[in-house]
Amino acid sequence: MDKIKEVQEEALRAIQEASDLDALLQVRIRYLGKKGSIQALMGEMKSLPKEEKPAFGQKVNTCKQEVTAALEERQKELQKKAVAERLEKEKIDITLSGDRLTLGTTHPLIMIQQEIEDLFLGMGYKIAEGPEVEQDFYNFELANIPKDHPARDMQDTFYIDPNTLLRTHTTAMQMRELEKAKGETPIKLICPGKVYRRDDDDATHSHQFMQCEGLVVGEHITLADLKGTLEFMANRMFGEGRKIRFRPSYFPFTEPSVEVDVSCPFCNGKGCSVCKGSGWIEILGAGMVHPHVLEMNGFDSEKCSGFAFGVGLERVAMLKYGIDDIRNFYINDVRFLKMFDRFD
């Protein structure tokens, strides 16, 4: 009986002493294997008197179970330890840079365009399109700028022939849309696109630039509606809390016409270098669609009215991002393009 106890204690000790899984396997063989110590104890049972056999057998079984349980437990422990050691060996330098999986960029002008599009799509506007090589008729005549009108000076034009030109403003698209509508209201659209004027390129002038105009025609559309709409736009584009200021101006296709200032987003209207101390930044031109324009396009100016506005995308981008030279947009230096890797 003591022998059993002796073997069990010896086995348990060996189990605890096994420092890795290999050593443990040797212990298992030594005690639980076919030729192991515990199996050998069973062999000794033969020589015992019959009546002692059951008790002895039971004791050996208990011993076997306990040794087995201890082995299993030690096995788990050592496995855990082995995994931990392996993982430790796999340690990496997490400070090394990640894979350079770069996304591309959208051109800042297009980003501004899309921002304005999304803003107005959300208000039920559609996006109009039209040709850049345009007829004088749509660019000027229908926009209430007949030949020899002084306002043609305001936008010196790239003519191709006497009737064809590179559009000087996206108003040409408005005129096409008005004509297409054949007097039917409501009309709610914006028309973004490239436009061209005979300007020498410098830090603030470009012979090619982008505009986005908006047009709403319906019953009882008011100048106050224009103000509300532009206020909404300014708040979305330059941050909440922006105020709008109208100043009288002149465009041949609107009456009344206004220049629109937005309260300076950089100093909150207190006055800074961006707004030249005035607290306001001129941002766009707008007005009520001229009744003659409505009539030329087949609308009854007694029954309906409308507003229109136009914003220069370069101007917005330059203000928003503090860009000081308009030529950057067309040089496309990658270092410049990569600054605009997200919407802001």
Partner: peptide, 20 residues
């Protein structure tokens, strides 16, 4: 004076804003 002008939004029948 334009400073007397209120701010409103157009009151008109609903239109769907959708890209082509």
């Amino acid at each position: 004076g334009f400073d007397t002008l209120p701010s409103t939004l157009p009151y008109m029948s609903a239109t769907v804003g959708r890209m082509s």
